[in-house]
Write a protein that binds this DNA or RNA. Structure first.
Lengths: 181, 181
DNA sequence: CCCAATTAATCAAAGCATTGATTACATGCG
DNA sequence: CGCATGTAATCAATGCTTTGATTAATTGGG
């Protein structure tokens, strides 16, 4: 049988102790596991999930938008008028995702879309008046929430964290990391 | 008009310089912005996106599964037989998400589901033989990829990063962070 | 004992994401 | 010039996730 029933044991587990339990047990049971790398990714992923959920539900959904939509507006704001392809590159999304998001943003009157004069395939994206107002207003609320999160760390710790995350992303170029096309 | 057209300017922007450009310009244009908090969240979110995309496309999709499915299997493996509610808590997902994922995992023969004898509402989840094999095999591939990522940092740096991320999530309890129910 | 309130799970509708195919346009070699 | 190749955007199918409503079972106060 695949498992011994031990429901009472599971009751002692909770959100905060799960990572400890997982690292202990897996590194005892499976060969070739690096417990530190395991703990790093579990901790990282959990923190990222919490941050994304919080910003999404505390800042963006109450305004009737989404963080992905905000990211597209943000990229256009800082680089527009701009081609959809570049928005995808800057925001780290796929072209199809940008295309879908721009449809809803255009429907809501925040983004203007027109074919490029110099290339019949390309689409030029820009903000409308409403879009400009939306992104500047939303950004300030977004950053206020970012400041709450950053308040967990001293300035030095924040710089250290940024530096370590930068090393992580820079290193990924060395082992043919998969990336969106 | 909302924007000055400056398409040539945008051409100089790319994935790696976008954060610098964004922080510079936004902190000059908007009042009350904390540039360090902004840079921290942008860097964090970008790194998390790259990690998630890479593990998903390099490890899980080639096996015909997803990282969310893997997370559910992982939680059941370490705590099962277990109620769906606890799986949601341990994996940081909503109950509805667990319910949907368990349906596909059960359809694929990896998870067994039965009503709890002691509570007619609850569902007990366990791994099948195939599920146990799937999670142990997939976990080793997953951890091998985690080791690639962690290889960007020394052991001390990895511990520092884990500690800083831990501070971030621990602090979030102090400002009524939104969390899944 | 009974009914109101709570709780576990699921369903329904909507949004965002993926990959792979398709359409339309641009480019350049022969 | 003309056609093969490449590129930008979109579409189609599928999957994960959310919120809010619904169903079913348990619990507890009067």
């Amino acid at each position: 049988m695949p498992q011994e029933p031990e429901p009472l044991d599971a009751d002692h587990l909770h959100f905060w102790s799960f990572i400890d339990h997982a690292v202990d047990r897996v590194s005892r049971e499976l060969p070739g596991i690096d417990p530190l790398a395991m703990r790093l990714v579990l901790t990282f992923h959990r923190a990222a999930n919490m941050l994304v959920y919080d910003l999404e539900s505390a800042v963006h959904r109450p305004r009737g938008w989404s963080w992905p939509g905000f990211r597209v507006l943000f990229a256009i704001w800082l680089s527009g008028p701009v081609e959809a392809k570049k928005v995808a590159e800057l925001s780290g999304m796929s072209r199809a995702a940008v295309s879908a998001l721009v449809n809803t943003l255009e429907r809501d009157g925040l983004v203007s879309k027109e074919r490029a004069s110099y290339d019949g395939r390309a689409v030029q994206l820009g903000l409308t008046e409403a879009g400009l107002h939306a992104i500047t207003t939303a950004f300030q609320a977004h950053n206020a929430r970012e400041q709450e999160w950053a308040g967990a760390l001293s300035e030095d710790e924040q710089r250290t964290l940024i530096e370590l995350l930068g090393k992580l992303t820079a290193h990924s170029a060395h082992f043919d990391v998969r990336h969106r096309t």
